[in-house]
Nucleic acid binder design. Structure first.
Length: 107
DNA sequence: AACTTGACGTGAC
DNA sequence: AGTCACGCCAAGT
């Protein structure tokens, strides 16, 4: 009713991820008024508008999921993250260092 | 206009 | 370690 569609609400949450931090799909989906699985959250992220920091979303273990279907985009995501000072281990984000959970912020 | 298909995970078993 | 259920929506046919 007076709430955004789950997808739009997800984008709102992604906008709140601070610079230099990174969140997992599952955590984001769980935070919504109507929680969804990480699977669904991922699908919604595929349609993320340009004004949301989509690159600050990765799999829980730090994998840049987008690289799976578009290696080029994966490279760009890594570049954007490193530009914010996000540390990498091999080809993954060091999630322990930068993990952002919306429940921790209680914005 | 109805139906099918594809789309950036995660944890439980 | 492999399989499976979970649940949404838009573009194409």
């Amino acid at each position: 009713m007076d709430r955004l569609s789950g997808r739009d609400e997800l984008f709102e949450v992604v906008r709140k991820i601070p610079r230099g931090r990174c969140a997992g799909y599952g955590a984001l989906g769980r935070y919504l008024a109507n929680p969804v699985s990480g699977f669904i959250a991922g699908k919604w992220m595929a349609a993320a508008p340009s004004d949301v920091p989509w690159w600050r979303v990765a799999a829980k273990d730090g994998t840049l999921v987008v690289a799976r279907r578009d290696p080029q985009l994966g490279i760009e995501q890594r570049r954007l993250l490193e530009a914010e000072g996000v540390p990498f281990v091999e080809d993954r984000v060091n999630m322990e260092a930068v993990l952002w959970d919306p429940f921790d912020e209680l914005d």
